[in-house]
Design a protein around this nucleic acid. Structure first.
Lengths: 350, 350
DNA sequence: GTGAAAGCGCTAACAA
DNA sequence: TTGTTAGCGCTTTCAC
């Protein structure tokens, strides 16, 4: 409290230090609060001073520290987190497009984190939660989401896509996977097939189970038995290729194949090409891919309304952020069959 | 300082409020600092108390507020930002994989933001900078990066990939685009082609210019003239298809086509299929795509070492984060030709 | 139209 | 082993 001169070191000169509102205020000769007002577009500062603030801020390379801002404003970061396993699939591309579209309207930044590789889903989600995103859209890759109890308890908006969460309840946006499985199978039956093989990924996965349910329903409705024609747990195209090859070499071989995701579709096509059967065996794949129409035959697929799913999920997140406490909701988007050739190859009963 | 009882309202009961170290400390009957020690794995707390802290923290659903933590620790957020136009391409997939691999070793979270659609590159990068990421890896989509002067001045680690920045200088990791263009063109020349058409995207884009340079160099080295065979500014497969069709209908039509990116490759293939020329006209595409080997003929491509680029970029970012002030560096990764059939269709001079 | 003071949740520095 | 104090950069509240 003595009047000894304080000689504050200029913070801006420290390596890596970034200018603060304090620095701008000092330069303009204004209080930090006025600077804050200007930089946040609040009223109550004279035009002249305001212009000075803007110009000095620009000159200094000022960027508002949103860490501090969000801390003071009690965790409104205007950021939503998206957690996916793997960004480079048609599915996640469309999803993120849809989410971005809605988030843009709300002035929020969308940050995507990947669970592939080092970090597990749990780690990545927790990291985002600790960084206080305002909401989270999660395409689960783990098998248990009960670690999110803390976030649920704190009312952090959580929306699941592609698969429902396990171990907790939350808003969820799904595709009609069973409907898609039914569509595909029915389509093949209609084209005269009775021995319809299935190649899919992890047997325990929700989407796999649902698509399979649709397959079984369609077979049952047509009075067909398909028990020995299912090959699951194919994690990559190579495994799917092997599985498809197997289905084609059974005593009573499959005359049509239904691939439960696009990686499997690729494996199936490889198997058919190796065997020279691509014009003889029908194929329907779940999920579209960019070059599906360039193949010979072009590939018939089941498509999902992916961008719509992204929009729905984001809309729901923002509804919750704005305080909605409507009951938890699970919505389901349609799936469609796009006939391109491979699925219309006739079977023995055509 | 009077002994009047303070009756603090329980903060945890407020809707959306999340437990703090204060809450944990109160429950355990310890100071906030001890809680901090435990939750950050610092030594100096008795086993017994530490276990209590951990268990109460878990019970309360405590998540450390990393906004506050980072604020106090002067902007070490242990987060790096990646800015890309569009996550769902083979390129960005590999890139993010490589980045994640390195970031994982450094305990940092990788957050990806997309510039496609609503937000411009500038907005997205600034938002990330305001959130105080420790470093930024940017695949430029805009045409001018001088807005990053503030970040450069503050020594925020910045690494550009795919294309160098304009308007500022920074560490950059590129592919040898010209080399790839030369490889492709030379390959076609070697297979007897002299009229080699090019279909590419935006003429002003760095990668397009470099790949074209390689093309011209190879033609010049072989004494071939290719002036009227270049069609740029094809933004999507449809435009590339039209451009390719045009090149095939010239008085002296192209006998081979070089597509400068995978979207163009797809358009080119479509044009050839429509004309029934896919077995007659040679094609080389820049950038691989998942179904390239399923097409007939399978597509010969130039590949980039994408994951390596991601690893290099991330390594450089962390080097800078750790304080390196080595001179700015531009590194270049190799490109390779993968022969699959379409590029080996012989030309008239074979 | 302008500013001073307090405090968001945490950690650094120091004290006991 | 444990606690106290100050303060990161901002916004909120209230006073002038």
């Amino acid at each position: 409290m003595t009047s000894a001169e304080q000689v504050p070191t200029s913070r801006t000169s420290r390596r890596g230090a970034r200018p603060t509102m304090r620095d701008v205020a000092d330069q303009v000769g204004l209080s930090i609060k006025s600077v804050s007002r200007v930089l946040n577009g609040e009223a109550g500062v004279s035009r002249e001073k305001a212009e000075q603030v803007v110009s000095i801020a620009r000159e200094l390379g000022f960027r508002r520290n949103d860490l501090a801002r969000s801390l003071r404003r009690l965790d409104r970061t205007e950021t939503i987190g998206v957690v996916v396993e793997h960004p480079a699939t048609r599915f996640f591309d469309g999803l993120i497009r849809g989410i971005n579209e809605v988030a843009g309207k709300h002035g929020a930044l969308v940050l995507t984190a990947t669970t592939h590789g080092v970090g597990t889903e749990h780690d990545v989600v927790t990291a985002l939660s600790s960084r206080r995103v305002d909401g989270l859209i999660i395409a689960p890759s783990g098998t248990d989401q009960s670690y999110l109890r803390a976030e649920r308890a704190a009312d952090l908006p959580l929306v699941f896509v592609d698969q429902p969460p396990r171990g907790i309840t939350a808003d969820t946006v799904l595709s009609d996977n069973a409907g898609g499985g039914r569509l595909a199978t029915q389509h093949l039956i209609n084209h005269g097939h009775r021995r319809i093989g299935v190649v899919g990924s992890a047997a325990g996965k929700y989407t796999v189970r649902r698509r399979l349910t649709g397959y079984r329903d369609a077979l049952a409705a047509a009075g067909v038995d398909g028990k020995d024609l299912i090959r699951l747990d194919c994690g990559d195209p190579a495994e799917a290729e092997a599985a498809a090859a197997e289905l084609l070499q059974l005593p009573q071989p499959a005359t049509a194949l239904f691939a439960l995701n696009s990686k499997c579709t690729i494996g199936v096509i490889r198997a058919l090409q190796s065997a020279g059967l691509e014009q003889r065996i029908a194929v329907v794949g779940f999920d579209d891919f960019e070059t599906a129409d360039l193949l010979r035959p072009a590939i018939t697929v089941i498509t999902q309304e992916i961008e719509a799913i992204g929009r729905k999920a984001a809309t729901q997140v923002f509804r919750r952020i704005e305080g909605s406490d409507a009951p938890l909701r699970t919505s389901q988007s349609k799936t469609h069959l796009v006939a391109r050739g491979s699925g219309e190859i006739p079977g023995p009963c055509a």
